[in-house]
């Protein structure tokens, strides 16, 4: 390989380039690379397919229907609004009425729901039922509690619209009774159309009784099972004083207790 090269009449000839003087690094190296033409294997396409599905999931779940008005609310507490008194080093002395704290906490828990039901409770047309104008929110607390505890599956009609989304709603029984009571209160008072005189409050005791009552039901709850519950039935338990949060007990305020069976 080291014999002198022929005269190739190239312009570097003036520099006396002959193979014997070419640097060793250049002499010993392999020829310029080429590419083989092995076909793409089927198994690799599966990796690509899995990643496509994952990416599509991100796009579908988080894109908010590609609406310019839909800013980010998913999995964040953006809908939570003012923080409850007592947070952030506040000693709690400036606490407002009990119901305000209870609602603010409920709004925080509602952060779990905004991805589907939206901060405004309007749901997503054709996919997730609304909470505004929903007979399940406006009606008795028993059905609402069953949905919260057990989730839902199957076709359902809400506010005259039918929905048939698979895995319609997950069960939220991993949340404490208190949190479920707060969010149920928040939903009913914010989005519900309550009968005259009803406060819409759901207490921790009520949710606790619901947890016991529905423990035998399947999860997620088929909508056919849900239909068996009395639409007007309320959970058992005493109503509370909206100012203090104390149970109203044996002497209920006018117009409140009689709604509770």
């Amino acid at each position: 390989m080291s014999e002198p090269g022929q005269n190739m009449n190239l312009d570097y000839q003036t520099e006396g380039a002959r193979v014997s003087t070419i640097h060793h690094a250049v002499r010993r190296e392999h020829a310029e690379p080429e590419a083989g033409d092995e076909p793409v294997r089927f198994g690799w396409l599966l990796i690509g397919a899995a990643l496509l599905i994952a990416g599509g999931g991100v796009l579908g779940t988080y894109s908010g229907g590609f609406s310019q008005d839909q800013t980010y609310a998913f999995a964040y507490y953006t809908g939570a609004g003012p923080r409850p008194p007592g947070a952030n080093g506040d000693d709690g002395s400036a606490k407002g009425p009990w119901i305000d704290v209870w609602m603010a906490e409920g709004k925080k828990v509602y952060g779990n729901c905004v991805a589907c039901h939206q901060a405004s409770g309007s749901g997503m047309a054709g996919q997730f039922p609304p909470l505004v104008g929903s007979e399940y929110v406006d009606g008795g607390t028993k059905r609402l509690a069953a949905i919260l505890h057990k989730g839902l599956t199957g076709p359902i009609t809400v506010g005259g619209q039918s929905y048939n989304t698979p895995n319609l709603m997950p069960a939220w029984n991993t949340l404490s009774d208190e949190k479920l009571a707060q969010v149920a209160t928040y939903i009913r008072r914010s989005f519900g159309k309550l009968p005259e005189g009803e406060s819409g409050v759901v207490t921790t005791e009520m949710m606790k009784s619901a947890r016991e009552e529905f423990s035998g039901l399947p999860s997620p709850l088929p909508t056919s099972e849900l239909a068996k519950l009395d639409p007007a039935a309320h959970l058992p338990g005493a109503q509370v004083d909206l100012e203090t949060g104390d149970p109203l007990g044996a002497a209920p305020a006018e117009g409140e207790e009689k709604k509770v069976p």
């Binding site: 390989m1 014999e3 090269g5 022929q6 190739m8 190239l10 570097y12 380039a17 193979v19 070419i22 640097h23 250049v26 002499r27 010993r28 190296e29 392999h30 020829a31 690379p33 080429e34």
Partner: peptide, 17 residues
């Protein structure tokens, strides 16, 4: 050949240039 080191003297000269 794509795999033999060195290749031809012309190749080498060209690379060096």
């Amino acid at each position: 050949s794509s795999t033999s080191p060195g290749a031809s003297p012309q190749d080498m000269q060209e690379r060096a240039a």
